[in-house]
Design a protein around this nucleic acid. Structure first.
Lengths: 194, 194
DNA sequence: CAAAGTTAAACAAATGTTTAATTTTTAAAC
DNA sequence: GTTTAAAAATTAAACATTTGTTTAACTTTG
């Protein structure tokens, strides 16, 4: 189907080169369809991107709510959550790269809203998980939760955006287990009551 | 001087809207000079950016080498270093935002090299500081240094790129001291030997 | 007067989008 | 099952802007 061919080609190009650097003709060529079909099916290049993100937001969503429902202890829950986040992040590295790249621009403000809302969902669940750990007196309660969440997403951002150039000599699996270990170590030595 | 007027206008526009979204005519208008003068003085729009970053790299460089030379204990040194990094980061927020925005694109690879080299200087000094703390048996030596550095720069990246939207309701000074406190707390509970 | 600096205009290429014509698909009528 | 007409999809071409850059004439400076 034409619509899907366009979406597929657009995803690859937006993820690879970014929205601005990708022309509608690039997309049309890769999808092997006529240029005009992009505007015919999506209205505009920008609406193509919004549609794409909308459709991918569910597929890439990091679902932590199940963990919150379980009765495991806070430490185990946090580890599960971080594992899932790591998996999703690595599985959709290019996609997150694209989101952050687009988020860093100031044009298209409503698209920024869309992306920010998208990324925010994970934070809410993770915050809840930490707060629960605090209520159960397992985690310290004299910490800055917002910045704790920022620490985690900051590190994951480094993963997706190759801020870790040197560490990136490793292959993905090796790197993932390194980050996993570091993140557990870091967060637990910070969060756990002494 | 024309050259400086252009550089000054270019900095403001690149920091605000980004390189691609800024046109040479934007720059010429803001600098109140003729468009052709940009190419006359700098050769091209891209060379204008490289020149700008070159000239700013010294002004914005986070100089940690003095700290490394001192004889203070590792904890104090680390705190000093993080203080300086925080100050520089806040003082040049828009500038770092621009660097990371540009770094996230894949066009202009040699410019990426330039920026990466620029950002890397800080990491080297900080790594040395931590390694020294390890030699003095003050810091743990079973940690992943590369990812520890990534954690710090990841958090600072969140600062410059408003990944901390919610926390950003605070003014800069309030936010800076929050981050300072969090960073000290986080890093010391992670790094210090028990 | 020669070199450097400045100007307005033109240039060439690329961009997202629209148009108008043509083909294909859909679905109802026979 | 075939016909038929409206709707949907596709096409090539054109369109209107915008872009960074160059040119050629000029003014200013040393």
């Amino acid at each position: 189907m034409t619509r899907d061919k366009i979406l597929h080609a657009a995803r690859e190009l937006f993820e690879e080169k970014g929205f601005d650097a990708t022309t509608v003709r690039d997309i049309a060529n890769k999808a092997e369809v006529n240029v005009a079909l992009i505007n015919y099916h999506f209205g505009s290049k920008e609406l193509l991107l919004t549609t794409l993100i909308d459709e991918l937001s569910n597929a890439t969503h990091i679902k932590l709510s199940d963990i919150n429902k379980s009765t495991a202890d806070p430490v185990a829950k946090l580890q599960q959550a971080m594992d899932i986040m790591l998996d999703k992040t690595f599985a959709n590295k290019k996609y997150y790269q694209m989101l952050h790249r687009e988020l860093s621009t100031v044009q298209r403000p409503q698209l920024n809203e869309q992306i920010a809302k998208n990324l925010k969902r994970n934070r809410t669940e993770l915050r809840y998980l930490i707060e629960e750990g605090q209520r159960l007196k397992v985690f310290r309660d004299d910490i800055d939760i917002e910045l704790t969440l920022g620490t985690i997403s900051g590190l994951l951002h480094q993963v997706t955006n190759s801020g870790l150039r040197d560490a990136f000599k490793d292959n993905d699996n090796k790197l993932k287990s390194r980050i996993r270990h570091h993140l557990f170590d870091l967060m637990l030595s910070f969060l756990k009551r002494k």
